[in-house]
Design a protein around this nucleic acid. Structure first.
Lengths: 215, 215
DNA sequence: ACCGCGATAGAACAGTGTTCGTCTAGCGAA
DNA sequence: TTCGCTAGACGAACACTGTTCTATCGCGGT
């Protein structure tokens, strides 16, 4: 109940805007009342994260297509996180251990093991993977990129500003940055995410093969 | 001057503990005085990040050994970040564009291009790489893992708690998690970081080769 | 001696998480 | 019905936060 209310606030105001007082308002009650049901804001965030983890849909594992399925899981996780504004910010530095989060890692662990990935590699890659998806979703989610000068505008305006900035650099000191100015700013979040997914899965395949020298 | 003071505070109190008032105290002055030199806390954080980026040492590029050099850069970045407590937390969601940060990406860009990585891939991988290093350093840095129940203790105690938790799960619902309980918690931050580095570089090599089908 | 200006700083404002003590609504037992 | 009892709500307060406004320094140039 209170977790659902908190999630409604997150969807509207973002993680930083999800204050105890606002969650209490959502329930037409006082902030102090929340502390009867929840130890502190930290616990509330954990509960919210696990609830969100429960929204992740998992297909039936198909070890023969494990690479495609790993990517599919990544996309599903990202979609689920972004559905709740910048809740990915709350995942950073937190290790979710609720039943719903565990269900996801259990699924991934099963898939990787069935695919022949060594146990040790599978255990390590679980962390790496969620680290990537969480960090990416967070970067994309807070639509306003905090700029040093308070000039933060829309996404496109910021990108144009960056491009101009890169191009204006002294070409003798930053030849590559100037030359690749367009490439550095082009490419939406979707494309960047897919690129990371490709690199991760390809790297995992190579690493796993190297770690299992029985051919 | 004020940036150095702020960095001293970070090293002592962490990012969240780096409040305007404490930085001012470090300089034996008042919090309001800082706003004469700095637009706001956001700008101060940017300046701190770029100063830290200036501490990153870059070797002479050696394209023939680009894979080793990319890993070396990762380790150097991580070391530099961890030297300043949890300052990595400040990198998340921020895009550093100061001269010192630019110097690093310029170096990496040059190395990757000279190594034959396609421009587009190089541009994308810059982001991916700093995302990984930043996220990893942040996770490792805040020594206290925020636990739902306020039972956060030392790193080792938490790990033991996790192991016990994983083992205590119902084996029919979480067979893989239970089976890999030891592997999931074992492995220090160094090993985990190296694993990520391996995966990333191997994945990059594979992806770059695929994107450049001229053999 | 005076002006101007770069710099400092106190007080205040709105907002945060959290705690304390008090209050109320409901319910089972006598 | 009346008496407890307790789960839950809640106002007030505390110690903080970033930021702004305003007044006030110190000091070099005229």
């Amino acid at each position: 109940m209170i977790v659902e209310a908190a999630l409604r606030v997150v969807d509207r105001e973002g993680v930083d805007g999800t204050t105890m007082r606002r969650v209490a308002d959502e329930l037409n009650t006082g902030a102090a009342s929340l502390y009867w049901h929840v130890r502190n804001r930290e616990e509330l965030l954990h509960l919210m994260l696990d609830t969100v983890a429960g929204e992740i849909r998992l297909p039936k594992p198909d070890p023969k297509n494990w690479q495609a399925q790993v990517k599919q899981l990544g996309r599903e996780m990202r979609r689920t996180l972004l559905r709740h504004k910048d809740i990915a910010k709350a995942t950073m530095g937190r290790i979710p251990l609720g039943p719903n989060a565990l269900r996801v890692s259990e699924w991934a662990l099963g898939l990787l093991r069935a695919a022949g990935i060594p146990d040790r590699t599978a255990a390590l890659v679980i962390d790496l993977f969620s680290l990537y998806v969480g960090a990416h979703a967070m970067e994309q989610a807070d639509g306003e990129i905090p700029m040093p000068d308070g000039a933060g505008g829309s996404m496109e305006a910021v990108i144009d500003m960056y491009r101009g900035y890169f191009r204006s650099l002294p070409p003798d000191a930053f030849p590559n940055t100037v030359a690749l100015a367009d490439l550095l700013v082009e490419g939406g979040p979707d494309e960047r995410f897919e690129f990371g997914l490709d690199v991760l899965v390809a790297g995992l395949a190579a690493t796993a093969k190297a770690a299992r020298p029985k051919r």
